[in-house]
Structures are given as structure tokens and as C-alpha cells.
């Protein structure tokens, strides 16, 4: 069973599927990607990403702000995609 995360969206509780997590050695943070399966007008599925402190726990997520973090997440997604396709 996959993990779920419950968010408040537009005043309603929405259950999201956790898609991936990873750890960054350089800053010691954990990163999470999840989706509520909503889509953009052009049909793309939304993936929400955030970071959290492994000690504080996932109860408190932090926004991805730096370009380096975005670049890293992008590369992780690329790798996951490559691995999934090669399996």
C-alpha cells in the first residue's frame, strides 16, 4: 500500500499519493513528491514537491526555493523515469 498525505486544498481535505522521497547529503534535507492527481488545463498531472527536516518529521514541509534544489529534483525525476522505462 502506498503512503498517503492529506492536505487542505480549497477548504477541503484532499488525500494525496506520495510518489517519491529522497535524501540530500549536501544539506541534510529530505525531499518528497506527491500528487492529488489533479491536472493542468493541458492535461499534465500535478506533482507537488517539498522538503522536510528528517528530525522534525514530515509534519512540517518546506518550500523548494533554490535553483539548486529544483535542479536536483528535476534530475531525480529524470533518473526515476529512466529506470522505470528500462525495467
Amino acid at each position: 500500500m502506498d503512503e498517503k498525505i492529506v492536505i487542505m486544498k480549497n477548504g477541503k481535505e484532499v488525500e494525496c499519493d506520495v510518489l517519491f522521497t529522497f535524501h540530500c547529503e549536501d544539506n541534510g534535507k529530505e525531499y518528497i513528491g506527491y500528487t492529488d492527481h489533479s491536472t493542468t488545463p493541458d492535461g499534465r498531472k500535478n506533482i507537488y514537491t517539498a522538503s522536510y527536516d528528517p528530525i522534525l518529521g514530515t509534519g512540517s514541509l518546506e518550500k523548494i526555493e533554490t535553483e539548486e534544489e529544483k535542479e536536483m529534483i528535476q534530475e531525480v525525476l529524470m533518473q526515476i523515469n529512466d529506470e522505470a522505462r528500462s525495467d
Binding site: 492529506v6 492536505i7 506533482i47 518550500k63
Partner: peptide, 11 residues
């Protein structure tokens, strides 16, 4: 996919 970097309210 569309990657979104924002924090919703966590329940």
C-alpha cells in the same frame, strides 16, 4: 507531469 513547488496546508 507538471512539477509544482509549493506547500499546501498539511493535515
Amino acid at each position: 507531469y507538471n512539477v509544482v513547488h509549493f506547500i499546501p496546508s498539511i493535515i
